[in-house]
Design a protein around this nucleic acid. Structure first.
Length: 927
RNA sequence: AGGCGCGUAGCUCAGUUGGUUAGAGCGCUACCUUGACAUGGUAGAGGUCACCAGUUCAAAUCUGGUCGUGCCUACCA
């Protein structure tokens, strides 16, 4: 083995081998265990959030596979309608053409080409992470079979009346020319203005105060051209007399009514609201209530249409706004311009301001679907982890709106609906089928709906469509409901809720038993990672490493807003002045686990990745040590208990305890605690102590061959077991080392990933051994402490005396002297009987036992004095706290006996130690 | 405006049903290349657990409030 761990060399090869051998497919006849992957965008790239979630799903899958379950991690990708279409459109634009120019069929062919070309990127990245996905069952939302399910679901829901076509206001993206759902709109606070316009009262009416006009306020002045009323509150005495009268709408040559509606807030502005039913969701509602005219003044590009007065027709909405303001001012009707903060709705893809826009769209009536979906979580069939996310789910589900599922795109599942000349709607799987079903004449022309379905519509069917429902139910029957869904809280509404609704509706089953909601990975400053912020990290770059220049190039390429380039470059140079070192997949994965606690934000800390790369190196070198000491040596399997040293028994006990901790925390999805337990065990127990304790035994084999052989066996078998414990989290290094270690134990098997996961066996816990090793550690640390604090060269052998100990201390010294000698470089260690007088020395305590290093020639009495004083001081403060507690009668009376006893013995130990140290201090002072 | 979360060592975070002298990693200081590992070893410094009340024999932990901070939902034109 190489002297240092070099992940790049071994990871690639194992990815390929595992997959080629078919290890990722479910095997055996154990309990089925299934996770479906949240399908990433087929033409996308992996980001840190993916990396994090893949790491978790892979750990779960590998863990269950090793537990003997039939583990299936179902893989697949999503067609990502808008995102993918946008990319291809941009390519066409760059080539000087456009979607409309090439036409629908050719465009869709181009998208498929792009999918073929780029679709492999993300799946290659997934493989690099070591994800044990069953690639033989890879699915794509636009596959024939999945598309058939989409179609069936649409038709069935339509036939049941749960899908309908409606003409209402939607969120319209004027750049992408499509409707989007409420969830795809992000509203951010921005600075704007509130314009106050005077609307003259018609027919000589006046307000209560005698004004001939009323003042309305608006943040979108151009919409006044579509006003069809002015509303006031019915109780508002200022305007009560005006209700039923009219205003002359400026610039429009139109009279519009003044209506009363309690939607109006009397306190805000003047208490008069202009009502534009075609361009505002609230106004639309009011329009419905009062039967107002709906005047659409925009085209689908958000330019003013023929319903606007001629001077404005053809203007862009923002140009129209400027002109309206100028014209109103010219008429002397501009009362005031007030700075105003408002929430501006923007499309999450395009970033442009969304317009409420009246169009025909398809909707799912979700009310009846929502009820059972709520119940499934209420009654515990589906559990969220952490549980508090259930509140978020309930809050949304109980106030759910019908789902707009049509998108004015070309890339996606085309809506299976046809229209005749008279606008009749026919829904079915094909034109031919519809003609037959409805007995339509050949001469009747039918035209298919131009639109496609929201990508989330097909994603909602993902658990059952990927498993073969409804025709090929072998996998569906075995693996559905799936065991757990691993996803981020940002898509609880988009995806999780919709999956629950659709799956219950169509299969009668829940889609998954648990939903593990992960935190969101943020950058080192806690900022959300996004392309426009330029703080995106590609997990592959942390694995392989990347130079600063390449990273800048990557982050600034293909930006939607090129003006941000400079900022992104600077930010990148500040964050990674020397680029990023490659840390390997195992280190990256372990970082993710260590950060996977219950919080909702995960600040990614590269320092931890480096730490875990070092951990890998530690594992690597511990294995080197084991192999170097085992090669060409006789290994006695299952040695007789009598030949096991206390260290052997101890490490066997510790690995057992670790197994228990891992198991317990895996059940609760506490990957942070799992990784902590494994790290702690392997580094601080196996490497720091057990390996060191094994040295004196192995290096002195002649004097006790049976014991050396026993230790060698324990050394190897605990390493082997540790590798199995580690494997779900660090698949590559564990496999690489296991391949070399397993043969020493005559373990047959081609891969660690198919080996059994260690399970807890209480009989291996040995508390006597643990106590004795604690003694050894305690004494060793005491001696090292004196060395360190007294600045004694590690190279200098020293003499140690033990004094005032109890019987156990004496027998421990007798039994474990060789360990002490090896670990602390002793010249001699001697037991002083109670009658013997110790020399002047530096002192440490282990319980009652005094560990003494004589001053002679080594130690500065002043330094020891300072050290003792510090120690005494610490004890005194501790003792005061304990005594105070014990002198409190209420404490004695109320606290459980165990707690009181513990405090009592603590007091005894502390005061014993205190007086011992005080005595030592006096001794030193008297020198 | 409502809802949720967070505030523990310089940094990133643990702390399970209230009972430890409050922990880990990184960073920092000193010493050390000794036969697995300098991607290392040994020792050490560093926290009045945001603040204020309350419950309790006992609060980082429970309750209320304050301040700070982040997110989500709904929005006033």
């Amino acid at each position: 083995m190489d002297k240092t761990y070099q992940p790049q060399q071994l990871e690639d090869q194992w990815c390929k081998t595992w997959e080629a051998q078919g290890y990722f497919a479910p095997q055996g006849d154990g309990l089925p265990y299934c996770i479906v992957i949240p399908p990433p965008n087929v033409t996308g790239r992996l980001h840190m959030g993916h990396g994090f979630q893949q790491a978790i799903m892979d750990a779960l899958t590998r863990y269950h596979r090793m537990l003997g379950h039939q583990a299936l991690w179902q893989v697949g990708t999503d067609h990502a309608g808008i995102a993918t279409q946008m990319v291809v459109e941009r390519q066409l634009n760059a080539a000087g053409t456009s979607r409309l120019e090439v036409g629908r069929d050719a465009f869709i062919r181009k998208v498929w080409d792009w999918k073929e070309e780029s679709g492999g990127i993300i799946t290659r990245q997934l493989r690099r992470l070591g994800s044990s996905l069953d690639w033989s069952r890879e699915r794509f939302t636009m596959d024939e079979q999945l598309s058939a399910v989409v179609e069936k679901v649409f038709i069935d829901l339509y036939d049941e009346g749960l899908i309908y076509r409606g003409n209402r206001l939607v969120n319209w993206d004027p750049q992408l020319h499509t409707a989007i759902s409420d969830l795809e709109v992000v509203s951010e606070e921005e600075n704007g203005s509130l314009w106050h316009f005077r609307y003259p009262l018609a027919d000589g009416a006046t307000t209560a105060e005698g004004d001939t006009y009323i003042i309305i306020a608006t943040t979108r002045p151009e919409t006044m051209l579509g006003d069809s009323a002015v509303a006031v509150h019915p109780d508002d005495t200022r305007y009560r007399n005006l209700v039923g009268k009219f205003v002359d709408l400026p610039l429009c040559d139109r009279k519009i009514p003044i209506i009363a509606d309690d939607y109006v807030d009397q306190e805000f502005g003047t208490g008069c609201v202009k009502i534009t039913p075609a361009h505002d969701f609230n106004d639309y509602e009011i329009g419905q209530r009062h039967d107002l005219e709906i005047i659409n003044i925009l085209t689908e590009n958000a330019k003013l249409n023929e319903n606007a007065p001629p001077p404005y027709q053809g203007l862009d909405r923002f140009d129209a706004r400027e002109k309206v303001i100028v014209d109103i001012e010219a008429l002397g009707l501009l009362a005031e311009i007030e700075p105003h903060k408002l929430k501006v709705p923007r499309g999450d893809r395009s970033g442009v301001i969304i317009e409420p826009y009246l169009t025909h769209q398809w909707y799912v009536a979700v009310q009846s679907l929502a009820e059972p979906a709520i119940e499934a979580v209420e009654n515990g069939d589906i559990k969220f982890v952490p549980k508090n996310w259930e509140n978020t789910y309930f809050a949304w589900m109980r106030n759910i709106q019908d789902w707009c599922i049509s998108r004015q795109l070309w890339w996606g599942h085309r809506i299976p609906a046809w229209y005749d000349d008279e606008g009749n709607i026919y829904v079915g799987s094909s034109e031919a089928e519809i003609r037959e079903k409805h007995q339509l004449e050949e001469s009747l022309a039918l035209v298919q709906d131009e639109d496609v379905l929201d990508t989330w519509f097909s994603s909602a069917l993902w658990t059952f469509s990927t498993l073969g429902w409804p025709d090929d139910t072998e996998y569906f029957d075995r693996f559905h409901p799936t065991d757990v869904l691993v996803t981020g809280f940002d898509i609880i509404f988009f995806w999780v809720a919709r999956m629950i609704m659709m799956t219950l509706k169509f299969t009668g089953e829940i889609p998954f038993k648990e939903v593990y909601i992960t935190g969101l990975v943020r950058d080192e400053h806690g900022q959300k990672m996004s392309k426009s912020k330029g703080n995106i990290l590609d997990p592959i770059d942390l694995i392989d490493g990347i130079s600063l220049e390449e990273l800048i190039e990557k982050r600034t390429a293909d930006m939607m807003q090129p003006q941000l380039k400079e900022k992104v470059e600077k930010h990148t140079r500040d964050s990674f002045p020397t680029g990023i070192t490659g840390y390997g997949t195992d280190a990256l994965r372990f970082t993710f686990y260590s950060l996977a606690s219950t919080g909702r934000d995960i600040k990614f800390d590269l320092g931890r990745t480096e730490g875990y790369r070092n951990f890998c190196n530690k594992i690597w070198n511990a294995a080197r040590y084991v192999l170097m000491n085992s090669e060409e040596k006789h290994i006695e399997f299952n040695p007789d208990n009598q030949h096991l040293s206390v260290a052997d028994k101890w490490i066997l006990s510790r690995v057992e305890q670790t197994t228990k901790t891992v198991q317990h925390n895996m059940e609760n999805y506490r990957f942070d605690l799992v990784s902590q337990a494994l790290h702690e065990f392997f580094w601080n127990e196996y490497c720091d102590w057990y390996v060191e304790l094994s040295k004196p035994v192995l290096w002195d084999e002649e004097s006790n061959p049976a014991q050396a052989q026993a230790s060698r066996f324990v050394l190897i078998s605990v390493l082997e077991k540790s590798l199995r414990l580690l494997h779900p989290f660090m698949p590559f290094i564990s496999e690489e080392i296991w391949q070399r270690v397993a043969p020493l134990l005559d373990i047959t098997g081609d891969s660690i990933m198919l080996q059994p996961y260690p399970t807890y066996a209480e009989e291996n816990i040995d508390s006597d051994a643990e106590m004795d090793i604690d003694w050894i550690k305690g004494v060793v640390i005491a001696i090292r402490n004196i060395r360190g604090e007294m600045d004694i060269s590690p190279a200098k052998p020293i003499d140690v005396f033990l004094h005032k100990g109890i019987d156990n201390d004496k027998s421990c010294l007798d039994n474990y002297q060789q360990y002490l000698r090896k670990l602390t470089k002793l010249n001699s260690i001697q037991w002083l009987e109670s009658g013997q007088t110790p020399p002047a020395a530096a002192t440490q305590l282990y319980g009652k036992l005094e560990i003494l290093v004589p001053l002679a020639g080594l130690i500065d009495a002043e330094a020891e004095k300072t050290r003792l004083e510090k120690e005494i001081n610490k004890l005194e403060t501790g003792l005061i706290a304990v005594s105070k507690k014990l002198s409190n009668q209420k404490f004695i009376a109320n606290a459980p006996d165990a707690v009181v006893d513990k405090e009592r013995s603590k007091e005894k130990d502390m005061s014993g130690a205190l007086s011992a140290l005080q005595e030592k201090l006096m001794q030193i002072q008297s020198l």
